[in-house]
Amino acid sequence: MIFTTLLAQVLRTKRALWITYSAIGLGFLLLYLAVYPSIQSQSANYDKIYASLPKGLMSALNITNSTPDLMGYLSSKHFGFIWLLIMALLVIAYSAFVIAKEIENKTMGFLLSQPISRLKLYVARYIGGIIGLGIFIGFSEVIVWPLAKLFNYAIDGPGVLWLGLAGLLFGLSIMSLGFMFSAMSSSAGRVSALTGAVLLIMYAAFIASSLVSSLDGLKYLSLFHYITPGDIVANSSIPLASVLVFGIFSLVTAIVGAVSFKRRQIQV
């Protein structure tokens, strides 16, 4: 009963966050869908431009050198960068809000003065994050399937679902990192800055490894290396290495966060 109450509480209090980011994600998707017919008609010209770009840059920006179908186009233009960026911002904000912010503004004191175990509170908020992330992915990515049907565009349905699942794993990794920092801090700003900084470093490492061949090994240290929307959609599968990296990274950071939150002192 306590767990359900805590889960319902976090979903209710953070619903504006999920709705706002889902609307932003959906807005971008509709924008790309609206220009898709004109992009499709000029695909030959785009392919010429892409052919002139360095392969490393194309890989770094998750751009494929053709626009074979709707999902290929969206993977290149939207799901490869903008969508991931919106998702990262969303889960960073959520993880900072549900622990560190509540300590900062002292509402955590109200919760901790009740017979609620810290571990239960942490897990309820983490599961609330997974549900919220699922809602975001549903409205900003999976929805492309019925929308494509509505506008009579050919679409690879399973590819949509596999990309949604990969996005969930990627988002979960960042959220877990945010939860780990949030469990250790009493400042939401510091949590956002730290998580953002780690992601920025990972992204810089990923770009550098794509552009400079001697830095190729750096890509393995970046979460961005393990999410390749174009390939996931084209192959309708997620590479095992990606599943393992996202899974292990999420598990380790989430557990470190849970232990820290259970043991830490809270000035409320």
Partner: peptide
Amino acid sequence: KEKIGYVPAEPVLYQDWTVDEHIGFLANV
């Protein structure tokens, strides 16, 4: 804490919840 009632020096509650929503939350917990 099942046996303890606590009033902090600066009670900070959820700004967007009503009085009754706080009571309902407590009843559920």
